[in-house]
């Protein structure tokens, strides 16, 4: 996969070869003509795109475009009204949420949803527990499997906290962490479930430019470990800098898809973003 990696700082001067390599890639997530209605509101309207293994795909669009709804449909919170979503070739709808997580999909939340009265470490351990098999009886009697998984989970959690840069805060309750630390903790918790696909819902919201740059760095590192990333973001520049491809939603419809440069110059996208108060300028 490394041969197809682009240096995001120099966004695809030669578009054609990149498209070719993408085509060779294995589809990981297929959003297949998905429509999702809430009563009269059509939150997703025939949305159709594919996410390939190893890429960073940006999902952008103005407020209320349906980006978060798309995430929610992918993670089993909402069922599509029409169409279907396939992850690693399997249909998502009807699957239990924790099962989808076990299949390798993990996410963060636009409005942070940690376990506030658990420590940072425990938050990440919950994620690591997703693949643990210690039964209630084994935990009650402290059988060897309990000790083994407990040690592994703890080591993994500490490693991930180190990776996102908040290991020194691991015994602090999540609620006492700063806003930025909480966002990082969410990423660590999601990574602890060993995802194949990591979905980040506006992970840089409320960050200053320096913090955003650090976060970009982190996202690239995550991708380099072999995790595919789906990134919702408002900040156009941020998306340009880090994504391999971009899908643009507006009013629940996909209005563009392609390489960052293509999308940036697409008149429909420019129109959608014109006058929209965001940090894109």
């Amino acid at each position: 996969m490394s041969d197809t990696e682009q240096t995001p700082a120099v966004p695809a001067q030669a578009g054609a070869p990149a498209v070719e390599t993408v085509a060779r890639r294995e589809p990981l997530l297929e959003v297949d003509h998905v429509t999702l209605r809430f009563g009269g509101v059509v939150a997703l309207n025939d949305v159709d795109f594919t996410l390939y293994k190893g890429e960073i795909l940006g999902l952008i669009g103005p407020n209320g475009a349906g980006k978060t709804t798309c995430f929610n449909a992918m993670t089993g919170i909402y069922q599509p009204t029409e169409g279907q979503i396939r992850f690693r070739g399997q249909k998502i709808s009807g699957k239990k949420r924790h099962h989808i997580t076990k299949m390798g999909m993990a996410r963060t939340f636009q409005n942070i949803r940690l376990f506030p009265e658990m420590t940072a470490l425990e938050n990440v351990q919950v994620g690591a527990d997703a693949h643990h098999k210690t039964s209630v009886v084994a935990a009650l009697l402290r059988l060897p499997r309990h000790w083994k998984e407990e040690r592994e989970g703890r080591e993994k959690a500490e490693r991930l906290l180190e990776f996102v840069g908040i290991r020194h805060r691991m015994h602090e309750f999540a609620r006492n962490l700063s806003y930025g630390e909480q966002r990082r903790l969410e990423i660590a918790r999601a990574l602890a479930t060993d995802p194949v696909l990591l979905c980040l819902d506006e992970p840089a919201a409320g960050f200053n430019p320096a913090e955003k740059e650090e976060l970009l760095q982190l996202i690239r590192q995550i991708r380099d470990t072999g995790v595919t990333v789906l990134l919702i973001e408002h900040d156009m520049r941020l998306v340009m800098g880090v994504t391999d491809r971009i899908v643009v939603l507006e009013f629940g419809k996909k209005i563009a898809e392609g390489l960052p440069v293509e999308v940036r110059d697409n008149p429909k996208v420019i129109a959608a973003y014109l006058g929209v108060p965001d940090d894109a300028a």
Partner: peptide, 18 residues
Amino acid sequence: RAWISIREDEDAAQLMGV
């Protein structure tokens, strides 16, 4: 941990594989 995570945020717990 599973119990407390359910108490804290049941949706998030499910999505973290609980």
